[in-house]
Design a protein around this nucleic acid. Structure first.
Length: 288
DNA sequence: ATAGGGTTAGGG
DNA sequence: CCCTAACCCTAT
């Protein structure tokens, strides 16, 4: 009778995800007590966090509908098994589980699980962008963040340090004390084309909730809540103004071309330093 | 305190 | 009618 259902807002979801990235999955009490997340997650118990994380994990990896113990499903997977075309885009909380799917291994001999070097840089920049820590993020935090989202090779941390040093060299990343953060010039370029999640299913969910369950409560409460939500959202998203982008974009064009060459050289150097042998064919096709 | 199983409300 | 998400209960 009390509350019909308290649906999770995207702010709460984001707080939960960042909390897991910071403290690790399983430290629900720690996340809930963290002063950074407690204002958002004040109405959620540690058990709620756990349950929500379980839901997120399942929908991310299971993709749609897996077999259930409760109801035997006579669905015949005759021609479309739908083997999860894209699963790591926004959230893949369970990283170690999908290490080696029972897929056929009839691939080319150079079938590495190693993503391309371009991907590693993207992951690092994405991590720094998402973390948005004003004083920068430590290597361990960045490493943990990326491992939560992507499958990486065992010596990834060593690669990460090299990549960070190279990103500093091209002024995409700066080092503050022992932490790394995006430079202002690059952050503007990265954050500028940010999407605007002001109108979403969040609104419809809230209004439906108000209409069905909380209709008798003051409608001003819901309106104020929605307004505050939008303000907070806009404040968080803009965060870094995008004023002068034309020049940045022009320079970025040049930088990108130089970058790929530096990227290639750096990766080659790292590989050879570890004693790996590469054929000229692999280098030519960037397949390493 | 956390993990996992189980239940129920709400939506397509 | 089935599925998903929030909620509840219990063993460790």
């Amino acid at each position: 009778m009390g509350a019909p259902k308290q649906k999770w807002t995207s702010e709460e979801e984001e707080a939960l995800r960042r909390g897991v990235l910071k403290h690790g999955a399983g430290k629900w009490r720690t996340i809930q007590k963290d002063p950074e997340f407690s204002p958002v997650l004040s109405s959620r118990s540690n058990i709620d966090l756990k349950d929500k994380w379980r839901n997120l994990s399942f929908s991310a990896s299971g993709l749609g509908s897996r077999d259930k113990l409760r109801v035997p499903r006579p669905k015949a997977p005759s021609s479309s098994p739908s083997p999860s075309p894209q699963l790591l885009l926004l959230s893949a909380p369970n990283n170690v589980a999908e290490a080696s799917p029972p897929e056929d291994c009839e691939k080319s001999p150079q079938d590495d699980k190693t993503p391309s070097p371009k991907l590693y840089s993207s992951m690092i920049l994405e991590a720094l962008d998402e973390l948005k820590e004003p004083n920068g993020s430590e290597v361990a935090t960045i490493c943990n963040f990326i491992e939560q989202r992507h499958e990486v090779q065992p010596n990834f941390r060593r690669l990460l340090c090299a990549k960070l040093r190279r990103l500093i060299g091209v002024n995409k990343v700066e080092k503050i004390d022992k932490s790394y953060k995006l430079t202002d010039s690059y952050a503007k370029r990265a954050l500028a084309p940010m999407k605007d999640p002001s109108l979403k299913k969040k609104d419809s969910a809230k209004s439906s909730k108000a209409a069905k369950g909380l209709g008798q409560l003051s409608p001003a409460l819901d309106a104020a809540e929605a307004a505050a939500m939008k303000v907070a959202d806009a404040e968080a998203k803009s965060h870094l103004a995008n004023e002068h982008m034309m020049e940045v974009e022009r320079i970025g064009k040049m930088a990108e071309e130089t970058e790929s060459l530096l990227e290639l050289a750096s990766e080659l150097y790292e590989r050879c330093s570890r004693g790996e042998a590469l054929t000229i064919l692999q280098v030519a096709h960037r397949e390493f």
